[in-house]
Design a binder for these strands. Structure first.
Lengths: 101, 101
DNA sequence: ACTATCTATGTTGTTTTACAATATACTATT
DNA sequence: AATAGTATATTGTAAAACAACATAGATAGT
């Protein structure tokens, strides 16, 4: 069992969003905030950490108004990690449900 | 949303077990270990914390062989907290599922 | 008699993660 | 001129889980 799941579901949420297509940080903050409260700083910290672990590639895109957007693209390693995290999440839910029902 | 859920599902597992009936620490360790890995020290730390917050009453029971068992009994406050945590857990699963599917 | 194992409770120090607060910077609106 | 929105990022703090260790009585094996 992955110990990180007890406190690391956000990783999965971000990775699963990126599996749908490249996104920039602020965009991820907005999307995830629709479902749960998350501090903006938390997302950037998480993105930096996962980036350092080789799950992302990044690229900058200029915008006419406002600062440039930093897009995150999943690497093959990142995609594989996303799938394994998703599987572990499903398993984890079952384990918890067996204990609490 | 409860921020503790991202890292506090163990609380719910322990409380839900106690909602079924009084149990002692080692017994909880055994039961929860059937579903997920958990360090013995973690359980006792968690029990002490929840006890200090008024969710338990405790009592000792002598055993013919081995040290006495410390039983934990949910207080009304603890039972109410268990139910609210359970509700929040169900909600949380839905929120995550919307983000990852 | 000694050793290991099981039952049972508990503490200490470390790591991880999320949060709050703060900082920067450009644009558009009032 | 001030505020709000878009966008990225850092710092310090708190919570929770872990690993390792400590204690202790009973039992079983060698």
């Amino acid at each position: 069992m992955n110990a990180q799941f007890k406190k690391g579901v956000l990783d999965l949420c971000v990775l699963a969003q990126l599996a749908k297509g490249d996104k920039y940080g602020y965009e991820l903050t907005e999307t995830i905030s629709q479902e749960m409260t998350v501090a903006t700083g938390t997302l950037y910290l998480l993105l930096r950490r996962l980036n350092e672990e080789g799950y992302f590639e990044t690229y900058l895109v200029e915008t006419p108004g406002g600062p440039a957007r930093k897009y995150y693209r999943l690497t093959p390693k990142g995609l594989a990690y996303t799938q394994s995290l998703k599987d572990e999440w499903i398993t984890f839910i079952d384990q918890v449900n067996r204990l609490i029902r």
